[in-house]
Lab assay of single mutants.
Amino acid sequence: RRRVRAILPYTKVPDTDEISFLKGDMFIVHNELEDGWMWVTNLRTDEQGLIVEDLVEEVG
């Protein structure tokens, strides 16, 4: 499975499927959606939700 790491922190918009995260958080990518969004699991918090790919980098 594809893994990505947050390069910046992010605070979710209330009442959306987004998740908040810290710089350095690792995610497993489940689905890549339109307009650069990804459905992921945050490995630190075990939370699932949407993040935008501009805020993460690939992990080898």
Rank of each mutant, 00 (worst) to 15 (best):
R1Q: 14
R1G: 15
R2V: 07
R2A: 06
R2L: 07
R2I: 06
R3E: 08
R3K: 11
V4M: 09
V4R: 05
V4F: 09
R5V: 11
R5M: 11
R5E: 04
A6M: 01
I7Y: 06
I7P: 02
I7M: 09
I7L: 11
L8E: 10
P9Y: 07
P9T: 14
Y10N: 04
T11S: 11
T11N: 11
K12E: 04
K12D: 03
P14K: 10
D15I: 05
D15L: 10
T16D: 02
D17H: 13
E18S: 05
E18H: 05
I19R: 00
I19M: 06
S20Q: 03
S20I: 01
S20P: 03
F21L: 03
L22S: 09
L22Q: 13
K23C: 09
K23T: 11
K23Q: 11
K23S: 10
K23H: 07
K23Y: 08
G24W: 07
G24Y: 07
G24K: 03
D25P: 00
M26S: 07
M26N: 08
F27Q: 00
F27W: 01
F27L: 05
F27R: 00
I28L: 11
V29I: 09
V29K: 02
V29G: 00
V29Q: 02
H30I: 13
H30P: 00
N31S: 15
N31C: 15
L33A: 10
E34K: 14
E34H: 15
E34W: 11
E34F: 12
D35N: 15
D35G: 15
D35Q: 13
G36V: 03
G36A: 05
M38F: 09
M38K: 04
M38V: 06
W39R: 06
W39A: 03
W39I: 06
V40Q: 00
V40P: 00
T41C: 11
T41N: 04
T41G: 03
T41W: 08
N42V: 02
N42M: 10
L43P: 03
L43S: 06
L43C: 12
L43Q: 09
L43H: 04
R44N: 06
R44I: 04
R44D: 04
R44S: 07
T45M: 03
T45Q: 02
T45C: 02
T45A: 03
T45L: 03
D46N: 15
D46E: 14
E47L: 07
E47W: 03
Q48N: 10
Q48W: 09
G49L: 01
G49I: 01
G49P: 00
G49S: 00
L50V: 09
L50T: 10
I51W: 01
I51A: 05
I51L: 08
I51F: 00
V52M: 13
D54G: 13
D54Q: 11
D54T: 15
L55E: 03
V56F: 04
V56A: 04
V56W: 03
V56P: 01
E57I: 10
E58W: 09
E58T: 12
E58Y: 08
E58D: 13
E58I: 09
V59R: 05
V59H: 07
V59D: 08
G60N: 13
G60Y: 15
G60T: 14
